[in-house]
Amino acid sequence: MEHVVELEKATLVLKLLGDKTRLTMVKILNSHDCCVCEFVEIFKTSQPAISQHIRKLKDIGIVRETRRGQWIFYSLNKESVYYPLVLSVLHYIKNQDYKLKELEEQGLRISCD
């Protein structure tokens, strides 16, 4: 079944993905669950800034959260009506897994565990 999204909603999704940090986050989340602390390390930015990016993606339903103990992990919401649109954009973006690999090598992957 083909998903059709209203123009205004598609514009909002594309605007959110137009931010380099959010686009990178979404690309990573398409294949890996991550917590805020990992994104703080990857982007070398503050926890509040990362949380703000996550909140915007979560508010529209692109990203979802799962609680594991006291930690919250984020993943791409594959149930979202926008997922096919997001996926079509991600198809053209180079894999970003090397950023997680660098974290692992520095011993910082899932640093909140």
Rank of each mutant, 00 (worst) to 15 (best):
Y92C: 10
A10W: 14
E65G: 15
L100W: 07
I60K: 08
L14N: 04
H53M: 11
L87K: 10
I110K: 02
I42Q: 11
A10H: 05
S88P: 01
L108N: 02
E65P: 03
S31F: 12
L16S: 01
E6T: 11
F43I: 04
R67W: 05
F39N: 11
K101G: 00
S111G: 05
I110D: 00
F43D: 10
Y74N: 06
K20I: 14
L16H: 10
I42E: 07
K27W: 07
R22F: 04
T24G: 12
I93F: 00
V36C: 13
T24L: 04
I72E: 09
S46W: 02
R22A: 00
F39G: 12
I60D: 05
D19Q: 11
Y82T: 03
K94C: 12
E79A: 08
Q106A: 08
R68Q: 15
R109I: 09
L76Y: 12
V5K: 13
E79D: 14
L7A: 14
L90K: 04
L76T: 06
V86P: 05
R55F: 03
V13C: 00
I93W: 00
V40K: 13
Y98P: 07
I72M: 05
E104S: 08
V86A: 04
L23G: 11
R55A: 05
L23T: 08
L29M: 13
K58W: 06
I110N: 13
V13D: 06
K58D: 06
Y83R: 02
K9H: 13
V63P: 01
Q106F: 03
C34P: 08
V36G: 01
R67Q: 06
W71Y: 03
I72L: 03
D19N: 13
E79L: 10
Q70P: 14
H3T: 13
N30E: 12
C35F: 04
L76K: 12
V89P: 07
K9P: 08
M25K: 07
R22I: 04
I62Q: 13
V26P: 09
Q106R: 04
S88F: 01
S111Y: 02
L76H: 05
S111A: 03
L23H: 09
Q47L: 14
M1D: 03
H3D: 14
D33V: 09
K15L: 11
D59G: 03
I60G: 10
H3G: 09
V4Y: 15
Y74I: 02
Y98R: 14
Q52K: 08
L100G: 00
S31C: 14
E41I: 06
T11Y: 14
L29Y: 07
V13T: 13
G107N: 01
K56R: 07
E2I: 13
I28Q: 10
H53G: 06
N95H: 08
L7M: 14
Y82V: 00
R67P: 05
K9F: 15
E104N: 04
V4I: 15
K15Q: 03
K58A: 01
Q96A: 11
C35Q: 10
V26T: 12
K99D: 04
